[in-house]
Simulated scan of single mutants.
Amino acid sequence: MYYSDHGSYFDGDIHDAETGIMKWSQEHNRAAISETVRNHNTYTFTCVRNPYTRILSSFFDKICGIQRNGKYYRGNLVPKLVAQYGIEVEGEFDQIKSFRRFLLFARDTIRFRRPMDPDIHWSAMSGHAATLVVNGGRYDAIVSTENFKEGMKDVMKHVDSKHALDIDTMPRFNESEGHGPKRAHPVEDYFDDLSMHLVYEIFKRDFALFNYDWQDPSRKEPLGEIDLDKVHKMLGD
């Protein structure tokens, strides 16, 4: 979207951009954003991801990986997890064992808000998406990460862009590959019956709203189309 406005990609991490983009964190843009959302003055969409691959990616990127500042995510978080949950992140550690212990930690943050509040990277997507709905907004589309190119091609048909964007040749951004250890097993190997239960407990509403299969961790793609009316009704309540 930055390219469609400016004809070039932002040089660096888009989270660091201060100009050429409107963010809620910018106080001077909040009124304009609120008005646009409430009056539905622009095409509105968001993107979701399979909860199984999302929580697994969070573990390898945010817990095992070294961030762009050269440190572990949230500084003292990893030592705390090592001490309290027995999670290993260095050397030739047992990825499956450590990930399943991380799942217990993620569940504790979401259900009990201990030993910390839930992090944006592993809290439910439905909670993030609800922020817009409860503040008077409405989604025109919800794109799945697994079918990103097809979804974004449809989005761009509804957007008046200053610069044409070729989705097929667009480079990939926000890749976590290289931040942490390489995943050694297929996605489904990380989830036994108990960990599948934990994922369902954490992301039950995500599975229901965004049509992912909670019974099969190996199935990445949604089971079908997302019912936007159902999304707005459930998130609005």
Rank of each mutant, 00 (worst) to 15 (best):
Y2N: 01
Y3N: 04
S4L: 10
D5E: 15
G7Q: 11
S8K: 12
F10H: 13
F10G: 01
I14C: 07
E18M: 07
T19L: 06
M22C: 10
W24T: 04
Q26G: 01
E27F: 12
H28E: 13
N29P: 00
N29R: 00
R30F: 09
A31E: 14
A32N: 05
E35N: 08
H40N: 15
H40L: 11
N41L: 14
T42Q: 11
T44I: 03
T46N: 13
R49Q: 05
P51W: 00
P51M: 04
Y52Q: 01
T53S: 15
T53M: 04
I55K: 00
S57E: 03
S58C: 10
S58V: 01
K62D: 04
G65V: 05
G65H: 02
I66F: 06
R68C: 02
R68Q: 09
N69I: 13
G70R: 05
N76A: 09
L77A: 09
V78I: 13
V78H: 14
P79H: 11
L81N: 04
V82R: 15
V82K: 15
Q84W: 02
G86Q: 04
I87S: 10
E88Q: 12
E88V: 00
V89C: 11
V89W: 03
F93S: 01
F93A: 03
D94V: 11
Q95F: 10
K97V: 09
S98F: 09
R101W: 03
R101L: 12
F102A: 07
F102V: 07
L103T: 02
F105K: 15
F105N: 10
R107A: 14
T109H: 06
T109M: 08
D117V: 10
D117S: 13
H121G: 00
W122N: 03
S123T: 07
A124I: 03
M125F: 01
A130V: 03
A130Q: 14
L132K: 01
G136P: 13
G137E: 03
R138N: 09
D140Y: 00
D140R: 01
A141R: 15
I142G: 05
I142Y: 00
I142C: 00
T145D: 03
N147V: 04
F148G: 06
M152T: 13
V155A: 07
V155R: 07
V159A: 08
D160I: 05
S161C: 10
L165K: 05
L165P: 04
D168I: 07
M170Y: 15
P171H: 12
R172H: 15
R172F: 11
F173A: 08
F173D: 01
F173W: 05
S176G: 14
S176T: 15
G178M: 11
G178P: 09
H179F: 14
G180A: 07
G180F: 12
K182N: 12
R183G: 06
H185D: 03
P186H: 08
V187W: 00
F191P: 10
D192L: 07
D192Y: 02
L194I: 12
M196E: 11
H197C: 10
E201P: 06
E201V: 00
E201C: 04
I202F: 01
F203Y: 15
F203V: 02
K204N: 12
K204D: 13
F207E: 11
F207V: 05
A208C: 06
N211C: 09
Y212H: 04
Y212M: 03
Q215R: 14
P217W: 05
P217C: 13
D227C: 09
D227E: 02
D227S: 09
K230S: 13
M234R: 08
